[in-house]
Design a protein around this nucleic acid. Sequence first.
DNA 1: CCTACCGATCGGTAGG
DNA 2: CCTACCGATCGGTAGG
Lengths: 204, 204
Amino acid sequence: MRTRREQIEDEASALFAARGYAATSMRDIAKALDLQGGSLYAHILSKEALLAAIVQQASERFHGAVRPLADGPGTAPERLRAMLAAHVQVVTEAPSKAKVFLFEWTFLGPARREQVALARDAYQAHFERVLAEGRTAGELAQGEADPKLAATYLLSALNGIAHWYRPDGPLTPGEIADRYAGLFLHGVEQPATVATGTGTGGTR
Amino acid sequence: MRTRREQIEDEASALFAARGYAATSMRDIAKALDLQGGSLYAHILSKEALLAAIVQQASERFHGAVRPLADGPGTAPERLRAMLAAHVQVVTEAPSKAKVFLFEWTFLGPARREQVALARDAYQAHFERVLAEGRTAGELAQGEADPKLAATYLLSALNGIAHWYRPDGPLTPGEIADRYAGLFLHGVEQPATVATGTGTGGTR
DNA sequence: CCTACCGATCGGTAGG
DNA sequence: CCTACCGATCGGTAGG
């Protein structure tokens, strides 16, 4: 049984994600729960504290899912695949909360916003580290892009999923992760045909 | 000399981009221009119409820059590189306006919002078409990802640039575009070593 | 958790 | 473009 507090956070997540934090009033949240506006304050301290709680919990989900994989065994490409799949999993299992964490955290007050900025940097650093290790090991070649830029590129693509994912869409979260991993690891360009021996022996 | 109307749109773009549309009041915009709140209405019809004008103009910039390249000459990879560079150029030459177009258009009323949704779909379709043509021509191989998903992936990564780009950052828009194009076309994984003849003849 | 309310601020307008 | 204002709504609180 969800506590009242959890119901409030769930409803607030849905509304913040759908309309944006600033465009959602406390009375909107209350109405969705059949309460009066003021009654919410028996459970929360302020609108910003409610946002902070949602953001904090989502942040912990992302970290908890991805960090052990970054530090785990496997080659860099293997770990990246696993981290990417975990990130997609966190986004798609609670899209509203992920969306609030990813795009509404900027509405926090200065103190909490800076905390979240640090947590986000630390999260991206997991990806940067694996990319750097892969380069050192000769498993990855990011062209001229350094690990920081490659991680920014990847996380931008992944976070976009929160904007368009629908549970009833054609692709499961696992399928989305597979395809995105293929795009990130191999790109879209057909490698120049080099003696892969499909029979004709190189169509130049 | 910028007209008053243009000054209002520029200032509104900066504030909408920095704080969000819903969290920006007409009096905020007026104050930045040393005006009284009500005075803005000598130049605009409503807050939403102001947002709509900014979004519309930015939308036209993106379309105008990219469409001719999609329809232009060159192989699919060449055209994708050019389109990607043009998109980055539009984002970075007016980051606030791009950001408003990319992330604040959802605050438009239903009628205008649907129009913009169509324009965005048409924009993405340019990328999808080139990706599909490249696949047909054997120039591109997107793994299991279809052109639509690959375009979504790419545009998510590109639009993220609006969130972090700073004119005084270490990379020029052209350098960002080059690196992102490398990541999109080739991915990050080192191709398996196949007779490229660096001397040792294949270190497996 | 409700009733009733607070001061502040919102988008927008009348009249000049 | 300003002064002065409109009704509506905001986040939040007192008291029960």
